[in-house]
Design a protein around this nucleic acid. Structure first.
Length: 704
DNA sequence: TGAAATTGTCATCAG
DNA sequence: CTCTGATGACAATTT
């Protein structure tokens, strides 16, 4: 639409780039492959045939690139080398079409070998190297997992941008040796941050596109975007560094290599767009544990100015997604969906899933679990959904509310989510549950967490040991940096509260000793201080999301101090009002956008009517000429009486007055005492059809 | 550095 | 009366 509005006379060139097109194409191709539509090659591995499209295979694999070029056009059958087994190739084939690699312990070696033989692109060798030790040995993660170039670039870019004091971190990153730069596949690049502004807003109908984008942003960015509060983010990075330092070098080292980080800087919209997490999920039969590794990479496919342009573009599909997200204005929506996605994938296969999938929620994504148990995740998903439903349906037993809160807390702790609700729900009611060491609701924990790296280290390592079987992720892990960002993306209130309640989350937020966070603003500092004081046993999110009845029941059931009560009400009011304001603004923007559409429609309609009017004018002229000619003929051939002439003159066109036909008509009419009427006006012509003419045509009754 | 945009918050009103 | 949502206004922050 921006392009429509921009259809100015000037010869301008605009570019529209869809951010979902490539993934859509990939989906269609996969669908075609499944239905064996337009497949033009048969790949045989261990006697098993796989239908596929040459172009897809060739674009994913060096092996196929070379082999397919030498194939005949029709009925091509390509037999793979013996090293490539069917079990190893099939996941790769699916990866080519879905960007997701599913494999388990039983076939990981085959997959890896096949990928190596076939020269599959976009498959991070580090993922195998990271997991193989977990599968086949007790050796913990000695496999090198190089950091990617893009990550460094991005981080450097961010560093140069922010120019804050992260030189030590920078050094850590730069020291690491890159081994394997990974190209971003289109599917990975295509996912633009929902918060990116459309280029159209600049190119095209500025207001229209801008409002569209803004409207959509208003929807999604309620939860997704966090460009603000850079101070928070910086403070969080500081804390991340503190946490990093607090962790053991071994853990840090492995993590640093295993988790290809990319951007800790979710602090900038433009810098956080390109994300493609690689999640490693292990649904082992015994442990039923799932591990996810989110991998964020920067945009390496489109660089320079083009990148900036692309990053700002947004498609209508994105907007629709965001519209949907706004409709579910509950804060759990994106989180739930993320969980659903992960679980759905997990359910499809008991094996290990590694999928390069674009993160839908940019700001949420960093908060997304680094390590997630599949069952825990699943439970979280279901719980949250049910929670929403029951919440909408009205009140329920108070105990169920608390159970839900606790289950949510459990699940979220398991998931390692560090968004505003994450880990902040402490089990004060359970004495010293796992979360207690993470939350400041435990006075000891809270107090000790203020002391700096010691408690942080303890909390982090403990948490990691208990929740991460891999034992190789630390807060040094860039994923945790992402978490930092994600965490810090939330506004001060929630952040503060989470920081105050969660020792783990305090890794990411400004701790007491951090003077920088004290400069963030009086209200935020005040909120943080209050959150710390009240030691609320529930997350603010959860409280805010509660329905009215549930909230009332909670208040009745739980014994809150006056301070806690005030804080709860305050936070609930403010959070709800915040969401209301966001909805209100979105509505405004939608309204503006609709009005612009209406204006555009009316303008178009007006142009059509003008064209129609012009055509009608031409027809009118032609008709006049025709009538004049006819009159001329009638007058010439008939011997008209003066009365008849007068009537005739009345309907003559100014272009063809009666006097031109009858030079003596004046004399005739004057003799008979009849004046010569003026020639018919346009109105007369237009409405003359309403006149009534008698049968002989002489007695014409004027309409007036 | 200043303008514009964004976002959170408060006050107020209506349901 | 209380709660909730909507909205104008303001301020802080970011771009």
């Amino acid at each position: 639409m921006s392009l429509m509005a921009m259809s100015a006379p000037r010869a301008s060139v605009f570019t529209f780039e869809s951010t979902v097109h490539s993934s859509h194409v990939l989906r269609c191709l996969d669908d075609q492959r499944r239905r064996d539509v337009m497949c033009d090659v048969t790949v045989v591995a261990e006697g098993q045939s796989f239908r596929a499209h040459r172009s897809v295979l060739a674009s994913c694999s060096e092996y196929f690139t070379h082999r397919i070029s030498s194939l005949t056009q029709q009925g091509a059958v390509l037999t793979l080398p013996q090293e490539v087994t069917a079990a190893g190739f099939e996941p790769l084939l699916k990866f080519a079409y879905t960007s997701k690699l599913l494999f388990g312990k039983d076939n990981v070696l085959e997959v890896r070998s096949s990928a190596s033989v076939l020269g599959f692109r976009d498959l991070d060798e580090a993922c195998f190297e990271f997991l193989l030790p977990k599968f086949f040995s007790s050796t913990k993660g000695s496999a090198p997992c190089p950091r990617k170039t893009c990550c460094k670039k991005k981080y450097k870019r961010q560093l140069s941008k922010t120019q804050d004091s992260f030189t030590d971190y920078d050094a850590v990153l730069l020291e690491e040796k890159e081994v394997k730069p990974v190209d971003d596949s289109p599917s990975q690049q295509e996912v633009a941050r929902p918060c990116e502004k459309s280029e159209g807003s600049k190119l095209g109908s500025q207001k229209s596109a801008a409002t569209t984008a803004a409207a959509a942003e208003g929807a999604s960015d309620v939860f997704l975007r966090c460009p603000k509060y850079r101070k928070f983010q910086q403070a969080c990075r500081k804390d991340a560094r503190a946490a990093e330092k607090s962790l053991t070098p071994a853990v840090r080292d492995e993590c640093g290599r295993s988790c290809s980080p990319c951007s800790s800087g979710a602090n900038s919209k433009n810098e956080t767009k390109q994300t493609h997490p690689a999640r490693l999920r292990d649904n082992g039969a015994d442990q039923r544990r799932t591990t996810e590794i989110h991998e964020k990479t920067t945009d390496v496919g489109s660089g320079g100015a083009e990148k900036d342009t692309n990053e700002r573009e947004r498609t209508s599909d994105d907007m629709m997604k965001m519209e949907e997200e706004l409709e579910q204005a509950a804060g759990v929506s994106s989180r739930v969906r993320s969980g659903v996605e992960a679980v759905s994938v997990a359910e499809r296969s008991p094996g290990l899933i590694l999928h390069h999938c674009p993160l839908r929620a940019s700001a949420e994504a960093p908060c997304d679990p680094v390590m997630r148990r599949s069952q825990g995740s699943e439970r979280v998903v279901m719980d949250l959904r049910d929670d929403n439903k029951t919440r909408e349906s009205g009140g329920e037993e108070p105990v169920s509310i608390l159970q839900r809160a606790e289950e949510q807390a459990d699940a979220e702790r398991e998931r390692g989510i560090m968004d505003r609700a994450t880990l902040s729900v402490n089990h004060a009611r359970e004495g010293s549950p796992p979360g207690s060491d993470e939350g400041s609701s435990d006075p000891d924990a809270g107090g000790s967490s203020n002391t700096g790296s010691g408690p942080l280290q303890a909390a982090s390592e403990d948490w990691l040991k208990r929740h991460v079987d891999l034992g190789s992720i630390s807060s040094d892990c860039p994923f945790l940096q992402d978490l930092d960002q994600g965490k810090c993306l939330w506004k001060g209130a929630e952040l503060s509260e989470c920081a105050s309640q969660s020792g783990v989350s305090s890794l990411n937020s400004g701790e007491d000793g951090d003077s920088e966070t004290e400069t963030e603003g009086d209200s935020e500092a005040y909120t943080r201080e209050r959150a710390r004081q009240v030691q609320l046993p529930f997350s603010v999110d959860w409280i805010v999301d509660l329905g009215r009845n549930d909230f009332q029941q909670l208040l009745k059931q739980e014994v809150f101090t006056a301070e806690q009560l005030e804080f709860v009400h305050d936070m609930r009011r403010r959070c709800k009002n915040r969401l209301a304001a966001q909805r209100c603004r979105k509505r405004k923007l939608d309204c503006i956008y609709n009005l612009q559409c209406e204006i555009h429609k009316l303008k178009t309609e007006r142009e059509k009517l003008m064209v129609q009017k012009s055509q009608l004018s031409q027809m009118k002229v032609a008709t006049r000429h025709s009538v004049s000619a006819l009159c001329h003929r009638v007058c010439s051939e008939a011997n008209l009486q003066p009365e008849q002439l007068q009537v005739l003159a009345k309907y003559m066109s100014p272009d063809c007055p009666l006097t031109s036909l009858f030079p003596h008509i004046d004399a005739l009419l004057s003799q008979s005492g009849l004046p010569l009427p003026p020639p018919a006006s346009e109105e007369d012509w237009c409405s003359s059809g309403r006149d009534t003419v008698t049968g002989d045509g002489t007695n014409v009754q004027h309409r007036h």
